[in-house]
Design a protein around this nucleic acid. Structure first.
Lengths: 191, 191
DNA sequence: TAGTCCATGTAAGATGTTACATGATTCA
DNA sequence: TGAATCATGTAACATCTTACATGGACTA
């Protein structure tokens, strides 16, 4: 009954932003060009068609705002179906493939956690992320150890850069977990 | 006279690998699926058409290898035009946009440095990379400082993750430069 | 009044994903 | 002999890039 969710990362980003605040295509483009939100393109050729698709799937709806002498704007707002879709996206389990190919999509998922998911989902995400990172780091280190003797200096350095990037993510995940746990403690004390 | 180089990152990766060693499409797919080479997809639907395009642009050429009772393989090797294209790609200046949107493409460029470019190009790359990273980090930190009070915890953490990633790249670039400088010193001593 | 920003879009083309298709060869 | 692996490809589809197009409103 529930059909497959297949939306691009851009679509999910748009959906999240529209959930935060009903917006026009132009607003969203400005947002992408003026903030470091894992810097999507702000090109109209990407954004306007993506909005149409979301509307076609009934994840958002639009109305034209032209009141007063103002110029016309098509303002989008999220539907309940859209909220459901975004939540489902956020609470998907993290796979090895996510970690290897879509690390920044994962971070996009996490950025919206506080607003659209509950604390438990955020914690599950971080724990599962940490676990996948551990596993992948083991793989990478093993590969480096086995092959470093056959690699050029620049090749080895490039691989090390990848490993260091994942190590940084791992430390980040640990710290993020600690942050949430500290928060929970404070809240208990307040009650 | 020299037309615009517009090849995807996948195409450049294929070109570099073929330069290292004449290969069939199947070899290249296996390479992508068995090494952590910034993990491109190993899907035939991406690789075979990309090889055809490279051949159409005369950056590689192919011959069919079927000697003996063996199965047929189409083996690709790089042309001098291909070598030129790859070198030109590697020695392009690093832009802000590269740093913001294509950090892993940059790493791919660097990975092949020792094999296809000279030491000076590698050093220029690292210096320029370090400089762009410094500039972008300043931007990101300024943005965080100005906006952290308005951000949710998960939003702030996600942004911090991005900053930490760039800090790691920055430290990497410094260390890589030091590695090459140490190397140069040793070589001088040996002479 | 000329330039810049607001605001929305389309068209052509490149690239990549997913799924399907085919056949030879090797190995248990 | 059947399964796995070698080996190459195509077709349909989604998505994104680049470039173009349009017009209103604000401002120096």
């Amino acid at each position: 009954m529930v059909e497959a969710d297949s939306n691009s990362t851009l679509s999910y980003a748009l959906l999240g932003l529209i959930w935060q605040k009903a917006s026009s295509g132009y607003d969203l483009r400005k947002f992408f060009s003026s903030t470091p939100i894992r810097s999507f393109s702000d090109s109209p050729g990407a954004i306007y068609p993506a909005l149409r698709r979301l509307e076609g799937r009934k994840l958002i709806r639009s109305r034209i705002e032209g009141k007063g002498g103002k110029r016309q704007r098509r303002v989008f707002e999220i539907t309940s179906r859209g909220r459901l879709t975004l939540r489902r996206w956020q609470s998907q389990p993290i796979t090895r493939d996510d970690v290897v190919h879509n690390a920044d999509t994962l971070m996009m998922r996490f950025a919206f956690m506080d607003e659209f998911a509950d604390r438990a989902t955020a914690l599950r995400f971080l724990q599962s992320f940490r676990q996948q990172l551990t596993a992948y780091l083991t793989e990478l280190r093993r590969y480096l150890k086995a092959n470093r003797q056959f690699m050029s200096i620049s090749g080895r350095l490039a691989l090390e850069s990848g490993i260091q990037g994942y190590e940084t993510l791992f430390r980040w995940a640990k710290r993020a977990l600690a942050t949430y746990q500290r928060l929970a403690t404070h809240q208990r004390k307040e009650n």
